[in-house]
Design a protein around this nucleic acid. Structure first.
Lengths: 345, 345
DNA sequence: TTGTAAGCGTTATCAA
DNA sequence: TTGATAACGCTTACAA
C-alpha cells in the first residue's frame, strides 16, 4: 500500500520545482497543518513556532499554490470581467473600479475580451470554472443563454446590459440624460431636425440613449427620425461626416452615441467646411479627455464609470458573502456637460 | 478504511452545488477518466460514448473546476499582468495585445493594478501562485527583489522596465526617437532653449526619453537642461503651464513625457495667451486620439503598444512551452509624428 | 476503447 | 497548541 500522503517524502531533500507546504513543514519541523495555520490564522499558532515557520517560508521563498488553495477552500478568490474590448476610457475605467473592489476583498480579476473572437461563448464557459463570480458587459455580445447557464453556477451580473430574467443589471442612467440633452438642442438652441447617430441594436446603452432622444421629441409633440446606424468608431464617424457633406444626410444637429464617433464626425465636418455648431450641432457621450481639448469643446454626457465598476465588484463580493444580501441601487446618475459644440456660448 | 475515491458516491443522486465530473460520469454510465478524455482528447473516445457523454455534459451544464484542473495538470492556464493603472490608451492597448496572445494559447489573463496600493508586493506574490507566468510593467514600481523572487518560480518578463539581472525586458524604442524629436526641434525649427517635462526617476521609459533628449543636445555640442519634474497627469501639466506663464520657467520648446501632460500644458499655455508653437513648441508621447484632434495638432511619438503586449504574451507562452526557446527581439520601433505643435506647417 | 487509482498541494475537521 | 488525515475535483499513467 502507498503510505499516507504526509509521509510520502520522508527525508527527501529539496525537490525540483517551487517549494510546497511539505517542504516548509519538513524544514521547520512541523506538520503541514501548522504551516497552513501560520498563513491563514497566525494567532492560532504559538509565537515560537510561528516565527520559525515564517523564517522558513521566507528562506524557501514559498508561495502557496493557488489552485490547491482554491480547490481545498472551495473559492477561487477571483472575479471574472467580460468586456468586448478596451478602446476608449470607458472599459478601462470600469476595469479599474472593478479591480479595486475585488482587490479589497482579496480577489483577483480575470479579464476576457470578446470582440472579434468567434468562440467567445466557449471561453466564457471555461472562465466560469475559474472564478467565484462574473460580470458581463452588455456590449460583449455573449449569448443570453450562456449568461443564464453560468448564472446557475456562480453569481452573475450584467453591466449596461439588457434586462435578463434573474440577472441583475447595473448601468449608468442613460435615457433621462439623453432626453435632457435632446431637449436642450430642440428647445434652448431651437434645432429643427436632429439625427441620432449610432446603432441602438448594437448595445443596450446605445438603445437607451436613443429612447431618450425619442422621448424628447415626443414630449414636444414631434417625431424623432430613425437612428443613423454607425459603429462607435472613428471610421464610422468619418463616413457619417462624408455622407452629411455629400447631402445624403440632412440635419441641424447630430446626437452621437459616443465621443469617439462625435469627434470624428466633428473633424470630418470641419474638414468639409461645415461649421459646428453654426451649421450643425454635435454632441457625444462619455466625456473623453479629447472632448475637452478640441475646438469647439464637445457637449457630452459624463458617466461615473469607475464607480460603476466598483459598485459591481462590491455587489459580487456582497452576494458571495451573503446570497441574501439586498440588491443595491442598480444605476448611477450621469451629468450633461455643455460645451460649445451644441451651440452654447 | 475509506473506500477509494471513485466509489465514494455510489448511487448518490444529484448533489448540491455545480455538477462535477463524477456526476457526469455516473449519469453517462462511464468512468470519470472517460469524461475527462471526452473533454481533452475526444478522438481517444469512441463516437458512441463521446456523444452520450457530451449530451450529459450539456444537460447538466457541466463546467470543469478550473482549480482542480490546474492542480492535476500542473498548469494554471493563466498569465499575470501587473500594471500601475489603466489611464490613457497605453495600458489598455498593452493589455489588449497581451490578452490576445494569452487567449490564443488558451490562457486567461489576471490583471493587477498597483498604483496607490501600499501592499502591492504582497498581492504580486499571491498572484505568483495563481499564474504560469507574469509580466511586470516597469512603472508598476514592484520591488526588484520581489520580481527576482517570483522569477525563480515562474517565467517573468518586464515591460518598459529597468534592466534587471536575469529578467528579460521588452519595450518600445525610446531614446532614439526622443533624440530625433529633440534634434528636430533644435535643428529644423531652430529652438534655442528646450525643457524636458517629466520625471525620469518615475519610470524607466521616461528616463530613456530624457536620455535621448540629452543625447540630441550633446550631439550638437550643447548641454541639456535638467528635467522639469512632473507626473504624467493633467494637473501636473496645468501646473507647468502656470509656472511657465508666471515666468518661473523659460523655454521656447517643451518636450513632454507623454501626451496627457503635453495636452494639458498646451491648453494651459493657450489659456494664458501663450502661442503654441510660435512662442513655445510642445511635443508629447503616445499619440492619443486627442493629439490628432486638438488645434494645433500635437507632435508626438507613436508606439506599437498593442504589438508590444502581444509580443510579451507570446514570449511567455513560448518560454513556457520550451524553456530554451530563443529570446525574441526585445524592442519595437516607434515613429515620430509631426504635427503643428512643434512648428511644422 | 475503457477503467483503476495515484497523485496534484492545499484547507479544515477532529483528536490528541 | 499541534498533528493526522480526509477531502477538494480533476489528469494521467497503467492495466485490462
Amino acid at each position: 500500500m502507498t503510505p499516507p500522503r504526509h509521509q510520502r517524502r520522508p527525508g527527501s531533500g529539496p525537490r525540483p520545482g517551487p517549494a510546497t507546504i511539505y517542504a516548509v513543514a519538513e524544514e521547520a519541523g512541523v506538520s503541514i497543518a501548522t504551516v497552513s495555520r501560520v498563513l491563514s490564522s497566525p494567532d492560532k499558532v504559538s509565537e515560537r513556532t510561528r516565527d520559525r515557520v515564517i523564517e522558513v517560508i521566507d528562506r524557501l521563498n514559498y508561495v502557496p499554490h493557488g489552485a490547491a488553495r482554491s480547490l481545498a477552500a472551495r473559492a477561487h478568490e477571483a472575479y471574472g470581467l467580460v468586456l468586448p474590448e478596451l478602446r476608449g476610457p470607458y472599459y478601462a475605467e470600469l476595469l479599474t473600479g472593478f479591480e479595486s473592489a475585488a482587490a479589497d476583498r482579496g480577489a483577483s480579476v480575470v479579464v476576457l475580451l470578446t470582440l472579434d473572437r468567434p468562440t467567445a461563448d466557449l471561453a466564457v464557459r471555461r472562465l466560469a470554472g475559474r472564478v467565484d463570480a462574473m460580470a458581463f458587459m452588455g456590449g460583449a455580445r455573449v449569448d443570453p443563454s450562456t449568461v443564464a447557464a453560468i448564472g446557475s453556477k456562480v453569481p452573475v451580473v450584467q453591466l449596461a446590459g439588457v434586462d435578463l430574467d434573474g440577472v441583475e443589471n447595473y448601468s449608468t442612467e442613460s435615457t433621462d440624460s439623453a432626453r435632457t440633452l435632446t431637449e436642450h438642442l430642440l428647445v434652448d438652441h431651437g434645432r429643427r431636425r436632429l439625427l441620432f447617430v449610432g446603432s441602438p441594436a448594437d448595445a443596450p446603452d446605445v438603445r437607451r440613449r436613443y429612447e431618450g432622444f425619442v422621448e424628447a421629441h415626443a414630449g414636444l409633440g414631434r417625431e424623432a427620425a430613425p437612428p443613423v446606424a454607425a459603429e462607435l468608431s472613428e471610421s464610422a464617424g468619418q463616413e457619417i461626416a462624408r455622407a452629411f457633406s455629400a447631402g445624403e444626410l440632412s440635419a441641424d444637429g447630430l446626437v452621437c452615441a459616443n465621443d469617439e464617433l462625435a469627434l470624428a464626425v466633428m473633424r470630418g465636418l470641419g474638414d468639409a467646411g461645415v461649421d459646428v455648431p453654426a451649421d450643425v450641432a454635435v454632441t457625444g457621450w462619455d466625456d473623453w479627455m479629447a472632448a475637452r481639448y478640441v475646438a469647439p469643446g464637445l457637449t457630452t454626457v459624463r458617466q461615473p464609470v469607475r464607480d460603476l465598476g466598483r459598485l459591481v465588484g462590491e455587489r459580487l463580493g456582497g452576494v458571495l458573502a451573503d446570497p441574501e444580501a439586498p440588491e443595491p441601487v442598480n444605476w448611477l446618475p450621469t451629468s450633461v456637460v455643455l460645451r460649445r459644440s451644441c451651440g452654447c456660448p
